[in-house]
Structure formats: C-alpha cells, structure tokens
Design a protein around this nucleic acid. Sequence first.
DNA 1: TTGTATGCGTTATCAT
DNA 2: ATGATAACGCATACAA
Lengths: 333, 333
Amino acid sequence: MVTIYDVARHAGVSAATVSRVLNGHTQVDPTLAERVTSSVAELGYRRNAVARNLRRSRTTLWAVIISDVENPFFTAMVRGVEDIALTAGYSVVLCNSDENPEKESNYIAAALTEQMAGVIISPSSNRVDDVKLLQDAGCPVVVIDRELQGSPTDTVLVDNEHGAELATTHLVEQGYRRIACIGGPRWLSTATSRYEGYRRALTAAGLPLDPALLRFADFRERGGYEAMASLLDDGAEPDALFAANNLMTVGAMECLVQRDRAVPADIAVVGFDSIPWADLIRPTLTTVAQPAYEVGRQAGQLLTRRLAKPDADVTRIVLPTQLQVRASSLRLS
Amino acid sequence: MVTIYDVARHAGVSAATVSRVLNGHTQVDPTLAERVTSSVAELGYRRNAVARNLRRSRTTLWAVIISDVENPFFTAMVRGVEDIALTAGYSVVLCNSDENPEKESNYIAAALTEQMAGVIISPSSNRVDDVKLLQDAGCPVVVIDRELQGSPTDTVLVDNEHGAELATTHLVEQGYRRIACIGGPRWLSTATSRYEGYRRALTAAGLPLDPALLRFADFRERGGYEAMASLLDDGAEPDALFAANNLMTVGAMECLVQRDRAVPADIAVVGFDSIPWADLIRPTLTTVAQPAYEVGRQAGQLLTRRLAKPDADVTRIVLPTQLQVRASSLRLS
DNA sequence: TTGTATGCGTTATCAT
DNA sequence: ATGATAACGCATACAA
C-alpha cells in the first residue's frame, strides 16, 4: 500500500504538506501543491479512510436500517436518503433488519462500533432500548416511518391515521357496510394508527366495529393471504377490505383470485401504500399513496441538520398521504 | 469514549489482556477473563472497529454494488449475498449505482479507500477499468449478473442466451411469426446474450430477422414503454413480443394496456426475469425465471472462498433459467 | 499466561 | 507556509 509518506518522499515535501494539499483546508504553495498532486497521480495513491477516520474520530457513513429490502416502499425511501447523503458528502450503508429485532440490534451495535456518523432507522420493534443506546453514545438518529415512544427523536412519518380514515370512508361512501380490516403488528405505530383511522371512519359512519371482520398479520404477503383466507373461511362475509400495507394487500388479492372472488363485485379492496405496476393488476387497485422518496429525503435532511447542530430542537415531520381511487373499490351499479 | 485502556485499568490488567479476552484467540486465566468481561459490561465498553481495522489492515465489510435498487431482481440477489455474508462474519454495504458508470466509479473508489474486504458488483458499463482497479489493489471482486471482458474474474451469471432462446421458441411454437424483441443496452452482456438467444431461435425456426421488429432500450420501465410505442407506431405489426428484462416488460405491457391492445389476442408477450405479484397481473405473464437469490448466494460463497484463498482458480458459475408459461403467451384457439 | 512496547496511516498541534 | 511530532484505539511481537 502506498501511504502519505511515500507521496511526501516522492514529492520532496513533508507528510503534513501532502495532507494539507489533499484536504485543502489551509493554504499551501502552488509549486509544492503541484508536485504533490502529480506524485499522487504517479504513485496511484489513495487515502486510507480507516486511518483517517480513526484520527478524526468520525466517519462519513450513514447507516440506514430498514425493515424489509423487498418492500418497494423502503427501497424508494432509501433512494431519497441516498440523494441527500451524497450531496452532503456521506455514503449510505444499507442494512436490512428483515422485521427481526435481533438482526436490528446487531446492526445498531455495528453502527456503533463502526463509528457511523449517523443512523436512519425504521424500527422493527417498539423497544426503545436500541435507539436509546445510539443516543446515549452520542450517535445522531432519525426514526422513519414508525413512531417510537420514549425518548424524543427526530422523526419522519406519514399521516397514517388520516390516510386509513380516507380509505375506509371511501368504502363507506361506495355503499359497503361489512368492511373488513387486515391490520399490521400491534407493536408498530403504523399499524395502530392505520387501524385507528379505520375505526374512526366506521364510527363516524355509524357502523359497528365487528371483531369478526378484524385480522392482524405481519405486514408480509403471506400474512395478508392467510388473513384473507381466514376471513373467508370463518364466514365473516365481508363486502369490502381495507388492508394496512402494500404486501398484505397483494397477499389478500392473491387469495381472492385463487378462490374466484371477484373484485370489487364480491368484495371491494383498498390497500395502504402503493404497489409498483398497479396499472397492470386487474382490477386496478385503489390505494393510499405515501411519499416514500420524500420521506427518505426529509430524513436525510434531518440527519444533516442534526450533524451540524447536535443540540437543535427535536423535529417531527408528518407528510400527507393521498387516496388514489382505482377500480378495486368502486361500487358496480 | 471508553477505550480498552479504561477497561484494563478497571479490571486491574493490561490492555493486551483485555484484547485477548475480547478476541478469544489465545488462552487467558479464567479469573482475569471474568474480571475483564464484567468490567466491559460495567463500563459499557464497545470496541472501536475503526481502530481495529486500521491495526489489522482489513475490515469485515463487503461492498455490494448493484445497478438498480428498485429492480426486484437485485434486491432478491442482495438477500442471497447477505445471508452468506452474515454467516461468514461479514456485513454488507449496499451501493446503488443506478446504471450510472460515474456513480459506479465513485463507489468503487470508496470501496478502496474504505478498505472493504471484498466487492460484489453488477457492472453498469463494460469498462473493465474500474474492476481492474480493484483487482490491482488486491481487493477481491466477484462480478454478478453481467459478464465482463478482459481480466478474468470470479463471476456468477445465468444462462441468458438459453433462456431467451426458450422464450422465443415457445412463441414460435405457439404459432407466432412476427415476434418483436425489445433488447437492452448493447454494452451489457445480459442484453447481448438475450438478443442472441432470440436471434438463434428465429433462425432455427426458419424465420427472418426483421429489423423493423427490433428495438433497444435501457432496461427500465419507461424504456420498455417507449420501445413498445415505437413498435406500434411504426407499423411493424408484431404478433408477439420478447422483452429482455422485467422492467421493460412492465413498461411494454403498460403501453399495450393504454392502447387497448389485448394480450395475447392482439399480441403475445414473454418477458425475461420474473415480476413480483405476476399472478395478479392480467393476463398472467409468461416469463423466464432467474434464480436471483441463488445468484447472490453463489456470489457470496465465491467471495468467501476468494478471501480464504486469494490465489485460487478463477471460477465462472452459470445458473439455469426456467421458462414459466402463463397466459400472456398462449395462442387463443 | 501476562505485560510492555510498537506501529497501523492519518490529521492536527506546535514550533519554525 | 512548512516540517517534526504526537495521538487516535487497537492488536500483536516480543520479553518476562
């Protein structure tokens, strides 16, 4: 490996001067600078980031810990984070916790030992301990998508409750009365908020909250499938469905297809969070769209701000959702 | 920050002993070890990976540079890599080059300066320079999905040509005669191989290779859409389509939907690489399935092997593809 | 088995 | 403006 000393020797200057040229903070004689840069090129020198980070006791890496890489919502969000990170001079390390609190803990520990500059996380549990660990260690954290109780933290969310309420009200207005709900894990704020929105809409419409129409699954495709199957098997006879995330909506739809239930003729469907290629699915799906990319961007900006001003006030950003009505929820006349 | 020296003082031993207990390579008196571990717990000590990496002059990070995070093929592949990495004691840093050679170069430079243990890359160009840079620096590289000319490198591919040939032959057997092809960027081996498979199948069937039926796009949804639009607008009158990747297939389908062309009645469709929720799309899509997760696993294993034996022979793995016939390609009687 | 001492490659402090 | 030198936190060669 070619070090800064090799360059210094080759250029006939001291290592300090090489460092100064490379970092460009202080003034250095143009003649020497020229000699240094050409030596760097000639020797093919590349700075050792590990040594640099040790000396400066900080890195230029952000850890982004998401709960499911195969969920398009999170990948879009990551792109948002990435774009901000790059312009701010940071690189993004993507970690997939797979909705597994243990994996999540490992990644958080890694972020700490690797001296990451900051962490953006969509928590897969409501255990505040892990995030607190980061904060106690002085590592800036931004929580996204899911709210965390306990210690106040910079957070970027979407208006889950309102979105779910819009979706459910839409079904009510279409004339549906037995509206089932496939909710998410009870320990996730996204799940409880969306369920709460569903509940509020029913109440506002004067409809009962029938436990036979409720299922709670795991935000995954299979979970949605099984919840739908259970709704059908148990004779709950729903005439509509609100599913609390994109993957569960897909699972539920697959179940309906397999059992020859027509959508929306036999049962109407609205899903929370959009699905790629929604236009190719038949019927086209009514969804509550979330600004995934923008969530990522805002989180990135929050982290940049926090890095610049560690003592700034804690910010909580709530972005709006939007109901996109398509075929799956329309009452056939 | 609490260092190894703080622990040593607290436990009444030397820093070297603490290090030995932490790494567990050498034997150390159980009494002392006990004192050390409890001191570690009591002080909340976490090892500084940056310092450790500098001292050992290696890290436990793999850089996985993929060309599109929003393509389900690559995310599935990443999961395969991840699973191998974790069991081998490495963490994965996911980098999204976005099919942009410049971004790719930056990530490669970063992998080098960050002293990554190894790199797995799906190149977004056929510039062999970047990969050569890594190899010259002694950084183990595994190339995936796309073949690279020039310096021999561990590689994991799928049988693109055969898959494309199967797909096209299937269309021929269904009785289609004017089979269009939307190919990918000419500088990517996946694109040229799949085109070659298409060509071979036509030749074998005694069909002409009509330039009016050929388009080349960028492996993205919009590219597929526009290529399809151009095929329709230019009056090429195809009765079937072979699209060379999943996103372009989606784009082409969207174009057909928008223009009220029935699939497969007006035009049959086969796509290369599968699409999530293919069962919800109407008509269901005939695709050439790739073992994405397995590609990732194999790449991970190749990298592990290379790290253990830097001088081992270069390996090239080609995994099989599989034609999955669904509704979009069937001849209506 | 344990401790002492050194160096990994860089940046920053202090003289000059 | 430039150079000598120390220090970041750790792992290891060597001495005891």
